[in-house]
Lab assay of single mutants.
Amino acid sequence: MPEGSASLQLAVGDRVVYPNQGVCRVSAIDVKEVAGQKLTFVTMRREEDGAVVMVPEGKVLAIGVRKVASAE
């Protein structure tokens, strides 16, 4: 991610809310080559049905992904 860009610090195992998809758990953060460029992807699995969603790390905030609020 370019320096100075806002990002959401995620780790494998974090629970997040993905708008219009529901609650997901981060299952992987991997670098993949797409069209000759190396990009970091956040892979999330929906808790409702296990569907897998992959989002480029740089788009996580723009999409509206946020961490699940704690009970505290």
Rank of each mutant, 00 (worst) to 15 (best):
G22S: 04
E48K: 13
V60W: 14
A69S: 13
Y18C: 08
I29P: 00
L10R: 00
Q9K: 14
P2I: 12
K38A: 07
V12C: 00
V52M: 10
S7I: 13
F41H: 01
E57G: 13
V12L: 06
V17M: 13
Q21I: 15
T40R: 15
K67M: 12
K67V: 14
E47A: 03
Y18E: 02
M54T: 13
A11K: 14
I63Y: 08
E72R: 08
K59M: 15
R45L: 10
V55Q: 04
V55N: 03
K59C: 15
E33W: 14
D30Y: 14
Y18R: 02
P2S: 12
G4Y: 08
G58W: 15
Q37I: 15
M1Q: 13
A62N: 06
E47I: 07
R45I: 15
L10G: 01
Q21W: 15
K59G: 07
E47Y: 04
L10H: 01
G36I: 02
V12D: 01
V12T: 03
G22T: 05
A71I: 12
R66A: 09
P2G: 12
E33Q: 07
A69R: 08
L61E: 10
G22L: 04
M54Y: 10
V53E: 03
V17H: 12
T43Q: 05
T40V: 14
P56Q: 10
L61V: 14
K38Y: 12
G50D: 07
R46N: 05
G4N: 12
V16H: 01
D14C: 01
V12W: 03
A62P: 07
A69N: 12
V12F: 01
N20E: 09
T43I: 14
V12Y: 02
A28L: 05
K32Y: 15
Q37E: 11
F41G: 00
P56I: 11
T40M: 08
A51Q: 10
Q9V: 11
D49M: 02
G50P: 02
V53F: 15
E72I: 14
D14I: 04
E47T: 03
G50K: 02
I63E: 14
L61S: 12
S7E: 09
V34C: 01
R46F: 07
V42M: 03
E48T: 13
S70P: 13
A71D: 13
A28T: 05
M44G: 00
Q21H: 15
V55K: 02
E72A: 10
M1G: 13
K32T: 07
M44T: 00
G13T: 01
P2Y: 08
P56R: 06
V17W: 15
S7W: 08
R66N: 08
P19I: 05
V65P: 03
V26P: 00
R46K: 04
E48W: 14
A6G: 12
I29S: 01
Y18N: 02
V12A: 02
C24F: 15
L61N: 12
G13H: 02
S27W: 14
K38N: 07
A6K: 13
F41M: 13
V52C: 03
K32L: 14
T40K: 11
V42S: 00
E72F: 10
L39Q: 09
R45D: 01
V65D: 03
V60K: 02
V55T: 03
R46P: 00
T40G: 03
G4I: 12
I63S: 12
G4E: 12
C24A: 02
K38M: 13
T40C: 01
V55R: 02
R25S: 06
Q21C: 07
K38W: 13
E47D: 05
A71H: 12
P56F: 09
G22Q: 05
Q21E: 08
V53I: 15
Y18H: 13
G4R: 07
S5N: 11
K59S: 12
A6N: 12
R15H: 06
T43G: 01
V53M: 14
L10C: 00
G13F: 02
V42H: 00
S70F: 10
T43Y: 13
A62T: 07
D49Y: 02
S5Q: 13
E47K: 02
R25H: 04
P19M: 08
G13P: 00
D30P: 01
V60H: 04
P56T: 10
A6S: 12
I63F: 09
P2L: 11
F41L: 07
Q9W: 09
E3C: 04
K32H: 12
R15I: 14
F41D: 00
N20H: 09
R66S: 10
V68G: 06
P19N: 08
V17Q: 07
T40L: 09
V52D: 05
I29K: 02
T40Y: 07
A51L: 11
R25M: 11
N20P: 11
A51I: 09
R46G: 03
V12H: 01
V23A: 05
S27F: 14
S5C: 04
K67H: 08
A51G: 10
G36M: 02
D14L: 04
S70D: 13
Q9T: 11
V52S: 14
Q21N: 11
D49Q: 02
R46A: 04
R15S: 05
P56C: 06
Q9F: 10
A6H: 13
L61M: 09
K32M: 14
A62G: 08
G13C: 00
E47H: 03
S7Y: 10
R45H: 10
R46E: 01
G4L: 10
Y18D: 03
L39G: 05
R15G: 02
G4Q: 12
P19T: 04
V12N: 01
E47C: 03
G50Y: 03
S70E: 14
S27Y: 14
A6D: 10
I63V: 11
F41R: 02
A11C: 03
V53A: 03
A62D: 11
V60P: 02
K67Y: 10
M44Y: 03
V65N: 03
E47G: 02
A69W: 06
G64M: 12
Y18M: 14
V42A: 01
E57A: 14
G50E: 03
S70I: 11
V55E: 06
E33D: 09
L10W: 04
V65M: 08
V55M: 09
L8Y: 09
A51M: 12
V23Y: 14
A51R: 11
E3M: 11
M54D: 04
Q37F: 08
S5K: 10
C24N: 00
G13M: 02
A69C: 13
A35W: 09
Q37H: 08
A51V: 11
M54K: 06
G64Q: 06
G50T: 02
M54L: 08
C24E: 00
G50Q: 04
E47S: 03
M1H: 14
S27E: 15
V17R: 06
A35N: 15
Q9A: 10
V16T: 01
V53C: 05
S70Y: 10
G36V: 01
V52E: 12
P2A: 12
G36T: 02
I63A: 12
G64A: 07
S27C: 01
A6E: 11
Q21V: 15
V60I: 15
D14V: 03
V17Y: 15
A71T: 11
G50V: 02
E33R: 06
Q37L: 11
R46L: 03
V34S: 05
G22C: 03
R66G: 07
P19K: 07
F41Q: 02
E3A: 13
V60M: 15
V65H: 04
V26Q: 01
R45F: 09
M44S: 00
I29Q: 00
Y18W: 12
T43F: 11
V60T: 04
V17G: 02
A11S: 12
R45K: 10
S27A: 10
K67A: 07
L39Y: 09
M1D: 11
R66M: 13
V34I: 11
C24M: 14
L10T: 01
G36N: 05
V26C: 00
A51N: 06
